[in-house]
Computed example of a mutant assay.
Amino acid sequence: MSANTQKPVLIIGGSGLVGSQAAKALRRLHPTLPITIGGRDVGKAGAVAKEVGGADAVRVDLERADLGQPDARAYSAVVTFLKDDTLNSMKYAQAKGVPYVSISTGLFEIGPEVGRYVHSPASAPILMASSWLVGATTLPTLLFAREFESLETLQLAAVLDEQDIGGPAAYADLERLTKAAPNNLVLVDGRWRWIGGEEAKRTFTNVDGAQVAAQAYSMHDLMSLSAATDARSIRFDLAVGESSARRRGEPFSTEMVIELTGRKKDGTTGHTRHEIVHPGGQAPVTALGVALHVERLLGLAGGPPVAPGLYLTHMLVDPAYYVRKLEESGARIRRA
Rank of each mutant, 00 (worst) to 15 (best):
F148P: 12
I195A: 04
I110R: 05
L143S: 14
T178H: 09
I165K: 12
Y75A: 12
L67H: 00
K201N: 12
T229K: 15
A95H: 14
A291N: 08
R59H: 09
D230S: 07
V114E: 01
A22C: 10
V58R: 15
R248G: 04
V323Q: 14
M90P: 04
L62D: 02
A213M: 09
T80M: 01
P182V: 03
A214R: 12
K44T: 01
Q94D: 11
T178G: 13
V186T: 04
G14A: 02
G190W: 04
L160Q: 12
L316Y: 08
L177H: 11
R40G: 03
F252M: 14
S244M: 00
K44A: 02
R232E: 05
G14T: 05
S104W: 03
A129F: 07
T205F: 07
R64H: 06
S20K: 10
G289S: 07
D164I: 12
S102Q: 13
L139A: 04
K264Q: 04
S329G: 10
L225N: 12
P99N: 10
V9M: 11
T86S: 11
E63M: 01
M1V: 10
E275D: 11
G167I: 01
K96Q: 13
G289W: 06
R64G: 03
V78Q: 10
E259I: 09
V306F: 07
V52C: 05
Y311L: 04
A245Y: 13
F108K: 00
I37W: 03
A47F: 01
I234G: 00
W194I: 00
R334F: 08
L177Y: 11
D221T: 00
K24D: 04
G262E: 02
G330A: 10
Q21E: 06
G309T: 03
R73T: 01
S253K: 08
R191C: 02
A122E: 12
V306H: 07
T141H: 15
Q21R: 13
A283H: 14
G166W: 07
V98G: 12
L222P: 02
A93P: 15
Q94H: 14
T32H: 15
A72E: 14
A23D: 12
Y171M: 08
H271S: 06
Y322W: 05
S120F: 09
G106C: 01
M219H: 02
G38P: 07
L139Q: 05
S243M: 08
L26T: 08
T286K: 10
T313K: 03
P125V: 06
L143Q: 14
A283W: 12
L292T: 00
H30V: 10
G68S: 02
R193F: 02
A129S: 06
H30K: 08
S15D: 01
A124N: 06
Q69P: 09
A307M: 14
D56S: 13
A336G: 13
S233L: 00
L292A: 01
D221V: 00
G166P: 09
F81M: 10
S102W: 08
L26V: 07
F204G: 10
V134G: 04
S329R: 11
A216K: 02
A25L: 13
P140Q: 13
I333L: 11
V186L: 05
V134E: 01
T5C: 15
R334C: 07
